[in-house]
């Protein structure tokens, strides 16, 4: 009872999102490199994860690989990649990622750590904090596969976790969706060439939503859930944490 009162006395912490400018939210997202005209871009070889690829005069970024390490965007370089702010990073990877209408107000996710460093998992965990307050969107964590609508996978899928991941997917009832979170889960990230890594999630089970980043910030994860639930995305926004 004591804690309930203490909790009610606290100021509101939930993030309010304003639909105004396209600028970013300091500390809410790291941002990432944006495609840049080749003549202004550094050499593709600067990228440790081979995320840069030149195409028709543009230096493109493969976000599944990018770990936003900023090596292509440092002041010591003559040519730098442009840096884009924001967090609308989630991408659709299957023909019908959206869950049927009934899921618009309630969604249960089961998280599988397939070799995560801990940061992607912690960003997922942060979603439940009062700042992002996942529950207000009707999204909840569940440990039981029978209740799960979406499998959220993080980490590069190690050889020893591969079967456990397949098993977790099999145990879910339909309709079910898979969301792969983090560059590890999407491409192996920094661990892509390890002998102990079985490969990105899509090599094990089919992926519906990809959320790139190392780690993707909580707002990018929410973006992924919106795609799944079919609720409108908010467009470029600015937000502040109210004191």
């Amino acid at each position: 009872m004591l804690w309930l009162r203490k909790g009610l006395n606290q100021p509101v912490k939930t993030l309010t999102v304003k639909k105004s400018s396209a600028s970013t939210l300091p500390g809410l997202s790291s941002g990432r490199p944006a495609p840049t005209a080749s003549k202004n871009a550094p050499l593709a070889t600067i990228c440790p994860t081979h995320a840069l690829r030149e195409q028709e005069g543009m230096m493109d970024v493969d976000y599944a690989r990018c770990i936003h390490c900023r090596r292509c965007h440092q002041p010591s370089l003559k040519n730098q990649m442009a840096w884009e702010e924001g967090y609308h990073w989630a991408e659709i990877r299957s023909p019908s990622p959206r869950l049927p209408g009934a899921f618009r107000h309630s969604l249960h996710m089961r998280v599988v750590d397939a070799g995560d460093c801990g940061a992607c998992l912690n960003e997922l965990h942060q979603l439940a904090s009062p700042v992002y307050s996942l529950h207000r969107l009707g999204i909840a964590f569940t440990p039981t596969p029978r209740d799960a609508d979406v499998l959220v996978v993080t980490g590069p899928v190690t050889v020893s976790m591969k079967e456990a991941l397949e098993e977790a997917y099999r145990a879910m009832p339909g309709p079910k969706r898979v969301m792969a979170v983090g560059s590890c889960a999407l491409s192996g990230g920094m661990f892509a060439s390890s002998f102990a890594v079985a490969g990105p999630v899509e090599r094990v089970i089919s992926v519906d939503i990809a959320v790139p980043g190392c780690p993707p910030p909580p707002l990018a994860l929410l973006d992924g859930f919106r795609l799944l639930m079919g609720t409108a995305s908010e467009g470029p926004v600015e937000g502040t944490v109210k004191p």
Partner: peptide, 29 residues
């Protein structure tokens, strides 16, 4: 859960300070 949430909100604040100043919420790079 009430104090847990309050403490977790402080963690988020630290992540945001780190992110705003270093460009990475978990101080990578």
């Amino acid at each position: 859960s009430v104090p847990a949430n309050l403490i977790q909100a402080l963690e988020e604040e630290l992540l945001q300070i780190s992110g705003a100043l270093t460009g990475h919420r978990y101080l990578f790079e």
